[in-house]
Protein backbone atom coordinates (compact mmCIF):
# COMPACT_ATOMS: atom_id res chain seq x y z
CA UNK A 1 0.00 0.00 0.00
CA UNK A 2 1.38 3.38 -0.91
CA UNK A 3 0.34 6.52 0.86
CA UNK A 4 0.17 9.85 -0.85
CA UNK A 5 1.22 12.86 1.16
CA UNK A 6 -2.27 13.80 2.24
CA UNK A 7 -3.05 10.29 3.41
CA UNK A 8 0.24 10.22 5.27
CA UNK A 9 -0.63 13.43 7.03
CA UNK A 10 -4.02 12.07 8.05
CA UNK A 11 -2.71 8.71 9.13
CA UNK A 12 0.13 10.35 10.99
CA UNK A 13 -2.21 12.67 12.80
CA UNK A 14 -4.68 9.95 13.70
CA UNK A 15 -1.87 7.74 14.93
CA UNK A 16 -0.40 10.55 16.95
CA UNK A 17 -3.81 11.49 18.26
CA UNK A 18 -4.51 7.96 19.42
CA UNK A 19 -1.10 7.87 21.07
CA UNK A 20 -1.89 11.15 22.70
CA UNK A 21 -5.21 9.88 23.96
CA UNK A 22 -3.59 6.70 25.24
CA UNK A 23 -0.98 8.76 27.06
CA UNK A 24 -3.68 10.89 28.63
CA UNK A 25 -5.63 7.86 29.74
CA UNK A 26 -2.50 6.31 31.21
CA UNK A 27 -1.44 9.47 33.07
CA UNK A 28 -2.34 9.07 36.73
CA UNK A 29 -4.23 11.90 38.47
CA UNK A 30 -4.20 14.17 35.44
CA UNK A 31 -5.45 17.55 36.64
CA UNK A 32 -8.90 18.26 35.21
CA UNK A 33 -9.01 21.21 32.89
CA UNK A 34 -6.55 22.75 30.49
CA UNK A 35 -3.71 23.82 32.86
CA UNK A 36 -1.84 26.15 30.49
CA UNK A 37 1.96 26.07 30.16
CA UNK A 38 4.53 28.46 28.66
CA UNK A 39 4.68 26.25 25.56
CA UNK A 40 0.94 26.73 25.13
CA UNK A 41 1.47 30.49 24.90
CA UNK A 42 3.95 30.03 22.03
CA UNK A 43 1.61 27.64 20.30
CA UNK A 44 -1.36 30.01 20.58
CA UNK A 45 0.72 32.90 19.27
CA UNK A 46 1.82 30.82 16.26
CA UNK A 47 -1.68 29.54 15.54
CA UNK A 48 -2.93 33.12 15.87
CA UNK A 49 -0.39 34.37 13.29
CA UNK A 50 -1.51 31.68 10.89
CA UNK A 51 -5.23 32.01 11.48
CA UNK A 52 -5.68 35.77 11.87
CA UNK A 53 -2.85 37.14 9.71
CA UNK A 54 -0.88 40.23 10.67
CA UNK A 55 -2.32 42.23 13.53
CA UNK A 56 -1.40 45.45 15.34
CA UNK A 57 1.90 45.18 17.27
CA UNK A 58 0.35 44.70 20.71
CA UNK A 59 -2.26 42.23 19.53
CA UNK A 60 -0.37 38.92 19.91
CA UNK A 61 0.00 39.25 23.69
CA UNK A 62 -3.64 40.22 24.12
CA UNK A 63 -4.65 37.38 21.83
CA UNK A 64 -2.77 34.81 23.90
CA UNK A 65 -4.09 36.17 27.20
CA UNK A 66 -7.67 36.32 25.91
CA UNK A 67 -7.43 32.81 24.48
CA UNK A 68 -6.25 31.35 27.77
CA UNK A 69 -9.07 33.13 29.63
CA UNK A 70 -11.57 31.79 27.09
CA UNK A 71 -10.27 28.23 27.44
CA UNK A 72 -10.46 28.45 31.23
CA UNK A 73 -14.16 29.36 30.89
CA UNK A 74 -15.06 26.25 28.88
CA UNK A 75 -16.56 23.09 30.36
CA UNK A 76 -14.00 20.58 31.57
CA UNK A 77 -14.78 18.17 28.73
CA UNK A 78 -13.94 20.86 26.15
CA UNK A 79 -10.82 21.86 28.06
CA UNK A 80 -9.66 18.24 28.04
CA UNK A 81 -10.18 18.01 24.26
CA UNK A 82 -8.15 21.16 23.71
CA UNK A 83 -5.45 19.82 26.03
CA UNK A 84 -5.22 16.69 23.86
CA UNK A 85 -4.96 18.77 20.69
CA UNK A 86 -2.32 21.07 22.17
CA UNK A 87 -0.29 18.14 23.57
CA UNK A 88 -0.36 16.54 20.16
CA UNK A 89 0.67 19.69 18.32
CA UNK A 90 3.58 20.14 20.71
CA UNK A 91 5.03 16.74 19.80
CA UNK A 92 7.70 17.45 17.12
CA UNK A 93 6.91 14.26 15.21
CA UNK A 94 3.22 15.05 15.05
CA UNK A 95 3.98 18.62 14.01
CA UNK A 96 6.17 17.37 11.19
CA UNK A 97 3.62 14.74 10.20
CA UNK A 98 1.26 17.66 9.71
CA UNK A 99 3.75 19.26 7.35
CA UNK A 100 5.15 21.92 9.66
CA UNK A 101 8.92 21.65 9.90
CA UNK A 102 10.04 24.55 12.13
CA UNK A 103 9.19 24.64 15.81
CA UNK A 104 6.11 26.71 16.59
CA UNK A 105 7.95 29.79 17.77
CA UNK A 106 9.87 29.96 14.48
CA UNK A 107 7.03 29.05 12.15
CA UNK A 108 6.03 31.76 9.69
CA UNK A 109 2.41 32.78 9.36
CA UNK A 110 2.12 31.32 5.84
CA UNK A 111 3.48 27.95 6.96
CA UNK A 112 0.98 27.74 9.79
CA UNK A 113 -1.85 28.91 7.58
CA UNK A 114 -1.02 26.28 4.96
CA UNK A 115 -1.26 23.62 7.65
CA UNK A 116 -4.54 25.01 9.00
CA UNK A 117 -6.01 25.17 5.50
CA UNK A 118 -5.26 21.50 4.97
CA UNK A 119 -7.37 20.75 8.07
CA UNK A 120 -10.02 23.22 6.96
CA UNK A 121 -10.73 21.31 3.75
CA UNK A 122 -9.83 17.84 4.98
CA UNK A 123 -12.09 14.91 4.21
CA UNK A 124 -11.80 13.93 7.87
CA UNK A 125 -14.30 15.60 10.16
CA UNK A 126 -11.78 15.22 13.02
CA UNK A 127 -9.38 17.60 11.29
CA UNK A 128 -12.12 19.96 10.16
CA UNK A 129 -13.42 20.11 13.73
CA UNK A 130 -9.92 20.92 15.01
CA UNK A 131 -9.72 23.74 12.48
CA UNK A 132 -13.15 25.09 13.30
CA UNK A 133 -12.50 24.81 17.02
CA UNK A 134 -9.31 26.87 16.71
CA UNK A 135 -11.01 29.29 14.31
CA UNK A 136 -13.81 30.00 16.77
CA UNK A 137 -11.49 30.26 19.75
CA UNK A 138 -8.93 32.58 18.14
CA UNK A 139 -11.40 34.86 16.38
CA UNK A 140 -13.55 35.17 19.51
CA UNK A 141 -10.45 35.99 21.53
CA UNK A 142 -9.37 38.78 19.20
CA UNK A 143 -12.68 40.33 18.13
CA UNK A 144 -14.02 40.23 21.68
CA UNK A 145 -11.19 42.59 22.58
CA UNK A 146 -11.97 46.32 22.23
CA UNK A 147 -8.47 46.74 20.69
CA UNK A 148 -9.83 45.02 17.55
CA UNK A 149 -12.93 47.15 17.17
CA UNK A 150 -11.45 50.14 15.37
CA UNK A 151 -10.30 47.98 12.45
CA UNK A 152 -13.87 46.67 12.18
CA UNK A 153 -15.26 50.25 12.36
CA UNK A 154 -17.36 49.07 15.27
CA UNK A 155 -18.28 50.94 18.41
CA UNK A 156 -20.77 50.49 21.20
CA UNK A 157 -23.81 52.76 21.08
CA UNK A 158 -22.91 56.32 22.04
CA UNK A 159 -26.11 56.70 24.07
CA UNK A 160 -24.78 54.15 26.58
CA UNK A 161 -21.46 55.94 27.19
CA UNK A 162 -22.49 57.63 30.42
CA UNK A 163 -24.24 54.56 31.78
CA UNK A 164 -21.52 51.91 31.52
Amino acid sequence: MTLNRRQFIHTGLLGALSLGIAARLAAPHAAPGFAASAADRQLIAALGRGMLGSLPATAPIALVDNTLVAIAGLPLASQAELRQLFDLLQQPLARMALGLRPPWQDARAEQVRAMLDRWRYSRLTLLRSAYQGLHGLLYASWYGDPASWQAAAYQQPAIMKGYL
Binding site: G53, S54, A109, D117, H135, A140, Y143, G144
Partner: peptide
Protein backbone atom coordinates in the same frame (compact mmCIF):
# COMPACT_ATOMS: atom_id res chain seq x y z
CA UNK B 1 -21.72 41.92 16.58
CA UNK B 2 -17.95 41.62 16.05
CA UNK B 3 -17.10 38.57 18.15
CA UNK B 4 -19.92 36.36 16.94
CA UNK B 5 -19.58 37.60 13.36
CA UNK B 6 -15.81 37.01 13.29
CA UNK B 7 -16.07 33.50 14.67
CA UNK B 8 -18.99 32.64 12.37
CA UNK B 9 -17.63 34.02 9.10
CA UNK B 10 -15.65 31.52 7.02
CA UNK B 11 -12.02 31.90 6.01
CA UNK B 12 -8.88 33.19 7.70
CA UNK B 13 -5.90 35.49 7.31
CA UNK B 14 -6.12 38.61 5.17
CA UNK B 15 -9.30 37.46 3.43
CA UNK B 16 -11.08 37.31 6.78
CA UNK B 17 -9.60 40.66 7.83
Amino acid sequence: HPLIMASTLPGNGMAHQ
